[in-house]
């Protein structure tokens, strides 16, 4: 299932759907990397509100999205991790250490705008 990516000013917004396969996630990473390069985006918001499970593969891929986009000059914020999912993730020992996180799309965009204005707080 293809993940739609929207452009909003200097930012890109990708909203993930529920039944996301491994292949979809990898495809998303590659697409985001390409678009950031082409559109010279400064920020990326990946909204995972619909994910009811984030396992080790999903985590690795989210992290690699953050890394690849950063290489091309954009900061990524992961938003929408649900309470139950966050709890399961820490139980499993997974951390999103160098990746910014925010509560939802609104907060994520606010964070990116603060960053852009130079002097916002990192979510971590």
């Amino acid at each position: 299932m293809h993940v739609p990516i929207l452009k909003q000013g200097p930012n890109l917004i990708a909203t993930v759907q529920a039944a996301l396969t491994d292949a979809d996630l990898v495809e998303l990473r590659d697409e985001l990397a390409a678009k950031v390069g082409n559109l010279r985006s400064r920020g990326v918001v990946v909204d995972v509100t619909a994910l009811d499970v984030i396992d080790s593969f999903a985590l690795r891929t989210l992290r690699s999205i953050a890394y690849t986009t950063r290489l091309r000059g954009a900061e990524t914020v992961i938003v929408g991790i649900q309470p139950n999912v966050a709890f399961a993730m820490v139980q499993l020992g997974m951390k999103l250490e160098d990746v910014a996180t925010a509560l939802d799309l609104e907060e994520g965009l606010a964070l990116l705008n603060r960053e852009l204005r130079g002097g916002g707080n990192h979510g971590g």
Partner: peptide, 13 residues
């Protein structure tokens, strides 16, 4: 630490 980590995943310090 777990509580802190989980909160951070939801964007809270």
């Amino acid at each position: 630490i777990q509580t802190v980590d989980a909160s951070r995943l939801m964007g809270a310090i």
